[in-house]
């Protein structure tokens, strides 16, 4: 990392800065998602039975059955929660489309050269390789996070659609039975691969000390300047530029109405409307 270039004072000054990374809506959506996964994953595993899934211990099936009073209610609750989960997400996307989803997509769905370069280096560094290679500067989300968001978007849609098919399978005529038959492995595949991503996501977000800021930002919505500077330089710089532009604009507005420009360290300009990613 390129912190060598910073003096201790600079680091402290950066640390004092606060940047808004997540809106409350995004934070709530994230934790809603987490809660639903915490419900749906164990119940889903409890439904799986038969020779296809020898890796799920039968005791787990039985535990889930006992909690829910049988297999049928277990399946019912799983599909009810699944539908709540999926429809809330769809609702959020539809009603927050302009305000939240477009920025989310803009920030998270486009990979540039730096992202690919980052991907070629960072994973190796985690295991002590490529120590001396310089990481390219990253935007609000790094290449890994962007890849993960692909996975999450595709996985969520896949899980949701196949889940709905399985929930309303009795309405599907027998001649289209193959739809149900394909929905099952695809549901499983979508959950499994997304879950593999979740494992990495959880480790990187919650366990790796370097990403502690990111972890707390999922509660507060904010990160400090140093973290932003070190991990998301492009974003930091853009934000600073935006801030400066906003301050400039604001000051000129004040001048226009004849208000004196406040002295240094005085009244701060209100934060700029900031496009932020949701997670």
């Amino acid at each position: 990392m390129s912190h060598e270039k910073l003096t201790l004072e600079e680091r402290e000054a950066l640390r004092q800065q606060t940047l808004v990374k997540h809106y409350t809506a995004n934070i709530l959506t994230h934790w809603f998602n987490v809660a639903m996964w915490l419900f749906l994953l164990p119940t889903g595993l409890g439904i799986l039975l038969g020779k296809i899934y020898p890796f799920v211990p039968e005791a787990w099936n039985n535990l889930m059955n006992q909690i829910f009073g049988g297999l049928a209610p277990l399946i019912h609750w799983h599909s009810i929660f699944g539908q709540v989960w999926f429809f809330v997400l769809i609702f959020n996307v539809l009603f927050g489309f302009r305000k939240y989803f477009i920025p989310f997509a803009a920030q998270r769905m486009f990979m540039d050269r730096d992202d690919w370069k980052w991907l070629m280096i960072r994973p190796f560094q985690m295991f002590g390789f490529k120590k001396n290679q310089e990481l390219p500067p990253q935007d609000a989300y790094n290449g890994g996070q962007k890849l993960y968001s692909y996975l999450v978007v595709v996985g969520t849609v896949g899980i949701g659609v196949t889940g709905l098919i399985l929930t309303y399978s009795e309405a599907i005529p027998t001649s289209l039975q193959w739809i149900i038959q394909w929905a099952m492995p695809l549901h499983f595949l979508a959950v499994g691969t997304t879950f593999a991503g979740v494992i990495i996501h959880v480790y990187m977000g919650a366990i790796m000390p370097e990403e502690r800021q990111a972890f707390f930002s999922m509660f507060t919505g904010k990160v400090n300047g140093l973290y932003a500077y070190l991990h998301h330089r492009k974003w930091y710089e853009r934000k600073m530029a935006e801030k400066a532009a906003w301050e400039d604009f604001y000051n000129r507005q004040l001048e226009a109405v004849g208000v004196e420009t406040p002295a240094e360290g005085g009244l701060e300009a209100p934060p700029a409307p900031e496009p932020a990613g949701g997670d």
């Binding site: 296809i52 038959q181 492995p185 695809l186 595949l189 499994g192 879950f195 593999a196 494992i199």
Partner: peptide, 22 residues
Amino acid sequence: VPAETFWHTVALPVVKAAVALA
């Protein structure tokens, strides 16, 4: 049925590998 074959030959190994790798 084809979906079942897919399940055994693709879905299960992929999920197992992905989760194990991650």
